[in-house]
Amino acid sequence: MTAPLIQIDRLSKRFQSGGGIFAKPRAMMAVRDVSLSIGKGEVLGVVGESGCGKSTLARLVLRLIEPTAGRVSFDGTDITALSPAALRKMRRRMAMVFQDPYSSLDPRHTLTEVLAEPFAAQGEPLSPDRLPEMLAAVGLPAAMAASHPHQLSGGQRQRVGIARALALHPDFVVLDEPTASLDVSIQAQIIALLADLRDRLGLTYLFISHDLGLVRYFCDRIVVMYLGTVVEVLPDTTAAPRHPYTRALMQSNFAPDPARRRAIEPLTGEIPSPFALPPGCAFASRCPRASDRCRRETPALGGDPAHPVACFHPL
């Protein structure tokens, strides 16, 4: 692998919610003890179900929120220790595309104003000749600059989100489910655009999705999360899963081929509440391989460093 651009070390985030006159405050670990690295030019995928901590991890990596513990280094610099001024300077090199193209663009602004935001954050003006270039890079006509987000389709809005992220020529872009709210036809367009941009601009991506099929198509390595922890890192897109949860995710993806119909080994059991995780492996309540040990002890991510898995009875 190339030299890591991003190094994540034992990162954790604890959230407290509720509290007040009637409710007792409750705490949960949205991200627990996550360590990862992302090589220059790599596309690292993060996959997992709703609430498993993907967006929280994304925001931690860009230090949009403060970690409870752990560090993130960007190109050798510990960004969790940077002063606000130094962090702002560093932010030029990192950007994010958000999950929801409907709420991440201010409806009152024209596209010109939306695309000027990253420049304003750095105290710079947006030069008028950059604008058509930015729109063209994501396949939008220059004439659209005066439009408002509500005049655009979902796919066009997400293209604007991508143009905004690329405004300051970043090295690293976090893509938080950039296609989750789009039709598959438009999703494929956006994925093709992201691939082209990576090739042309030499970008490094952290690509978040709940769709393992999509992640396997688009990413180089794949991190599988379950309830705040990393349970497996697949070294490439063809690696066979070793964690029972990864296998369940794979089986949940139906191939568009009636000749490959199959019975799904249904996951029974419920997902435990993140506020009251039982002892042991968090997946034990749904795992067909769970043993007594799984319900007592928590498996750590380990084994083959190229393909680590957190499971006592891996496949």
Partner: peptide, 13 residues
């Protein structure tokens, strides 16, 4: 629909 074994770039939408 991304499928197993699909070549990169094959998904065009």
């Amino acid at each position: 629909i991304p499928q197993e074994g699909m070549a990169k770039g094959a998904l065009r939408g």
